Lab assay of single mutants.
Amino acid sequence: KLNEKEKELCQMVRLVPGAYLEYKSALLNECNKQGGLRLAQARALIKIDVNKTRKIYDFLIREGYI
């Protein structure tokens, strides 16, 4: 299910792929509902370490998901 970049992200932030996909889905759904997504909203949405949230958020922006 994951592409190579997503696999690298999961290894870097030490997330299991299932958890990453869950977080990605939640962030994309919220982004679609709101018409955009700020980091503060992402942090409130997924209750994990803020540094991990930041890396996931930055990755999703860089890859054009949000």
Score class of each variant (00 low, 15 high):
55 K>I: 12
10 C>F: 01
17 P>F: 00
44 A>H: 13
37 L>W: 06
29 N>F: 06
24 K>I: 05
43 R>H: 14
10 C>D: 02
6 E>A: 03
3 N>I: 01
33 K>L: 11
57 Y>Q: 04
48 I>H: 10
41 Q>I: 03
53 T>L: 12
47 K>F: 00
39 L>D: 06
45 L>D: 08
49 D>I: 14
42 A>W: 03
28 L>S: 06
22 E>I: 04
26 A>K: 14
51 N>Q: 08
58 D>P: 00
20 Y>H: 01
11 Q>N: 13
46 I>H: 09
56 I>G: 01
17 P>W: 02
65 Y>K: 10
1 K>Q: 12
21 L>S: 07
4 E>S: 11
13 V>L: 15
39 L>Y: 11
64 G>T: 06
58 D>H: 08
45 L>G: 08
15 L>I: 13
31 C>S: 13
1 K>G: 11
12 M>H: 14
13 V>W: 05
9 L>F: 15
24 K>P: 01
31 C>K: 04
60 L>V: 01
36 G>H: 09
64 G>Y: 01
29 N>G: 10
61 I>R: 12
22 E>W: 09
39 L>M: 09
59 F>E: 00
20 Y>S: 02
29 N>P: 02
62 R>N: 12
40 A>W: 10
63 E>Y: 05
26 A>P: 01
19 A>T: 11
60 L>K: 03
23 Y>F: 11
31 C>T: 10
13 V>P: 04
52 K>P: 10
49 D>V: 14
23 Y>W: 07
63 E>T: 04
33 K>E: 07
44 A>M: 08
59 F>N: 00
59 F>C: 02
17 P>D: 03
8 E>L: 12
22 E>R: 13
63 E>W: 03
19 A>M: 12
37 L>D: 06
64 G>R: 11
13 V>C: 14
29 N>T: 12
20 Y>T: 05
21 L>H: 04
46 I>N: 06
2 L>F: 01
11 Q>C: 04
17 P>M: 00
34 Q>D: 08
41 Q>S: 08
56 I>S: 02
15 L>T: 04
58 D>M: 04
18 G>C: 11
37 L>N: 03
29 N>I: 04
28 L>Q: 12
13 V>Y: 12
38 R>Q: 13
35 G>L: 05
58 D>Q: 10
1 K>S: 11
47 K>Q: 11
57 Y>F: 11
4 E>C: 05
60 L>T: 03
40 A>D: 15
60 L>R: 00
19 A>D: 15
38 R>W: 06
30 E>K: 06
1 K>I: 10
41 Q>P: 01
30 E>C: 10
24 K>T: 01
55 K>W: 06
46 I>A: 11
28 L>I: 15
8 E>C: 09
56 I>P: 06
32 N>M: 13
11 Q>R: 14
28 L>Y: 05
49 D>F: 10
34 Q>M: 12
19 A>P: 02
48 I>V: 11
48 I>R: 10
49 D>Y: 08
66 I>F: 05
39 L>V: 06
63 E>I: 02
56 I>D: 01
58 D>R: 05
33 K>V: 08
43 R>P: 06
41 Q>A: 10
21 L>M: 08
47 K>Y: 03
15 L>D: 04
56 I>Q: 00
35 G>N: 10
44 A>R: 12
2 L>W: 05
14 R>A: 10
21 L>G: 01
6 E>K: 03
5 K>P: 03
43 R>A: 15
28 L>C: 12
31 C>H: 12
21 L>D: 03
16 V>S: 15
43 R>K: 14
9 L>P: 00
44 A>W: 02
11 Q>K: 15
19 A>C: 09
8 E>P: 01
65 Y>R: 06
13 V>H: 09
43 R>L: 15
43 R>M: 15
23 Y>T: 04
28 L>H: 02
3 N>W: 00
8 E>S: 09
6 E>Y: 06
33 K>W: 04
41 Q>T: 09
31 C>E: 06
32 N>E: 13
16 V>E: 15
46 I>M: 13
36 G>N: 07
27 L>C: 04
58 D>W: 04
33 K>D: 08
55 K>R: 11
40 A>V: 09
16 V>K: 15
44 A>P: 03
40 A>E: 15
9 L>R: 00
65 Y>P: 03
63 E>C: 01
9 L>G: 00
66 I>A: 07
39 L>H: 05
37 L>I: 09
6 E>I: 08
11 Q>P: 01
26 A>G: 02
12 M>L: 14
2 L>I: 07
22 E>M: 09
25 S>Q: 15
29 N>W: 06
42 A>S: 04
29 N>Y: 08
5 K>T: 04
66 I>S: 04
22 E>D: 07
41 Q>M: 06
43 R>I: 15
40 A>R: 09
46 I>W: 06
60 L>F: 11
66 I>T: 05
19 A>H: 11
9 L>N: 02
51 N>R: 13
38 R>K: 14
20 Y>W: 04
21 L>A: 09
19 A>N: 10
6 E>M: 05
14 R>K: 11
2 L>K: 00
44 A>V: 01
18 G>N: 14
15 L>A: 00
14 R>C: 13
18 G>P: 06
14 R>S: 14
60 L>Y: 01
36 G>I: 02
30 E>H: 09
30 E>A: 14
53 T>I: 11
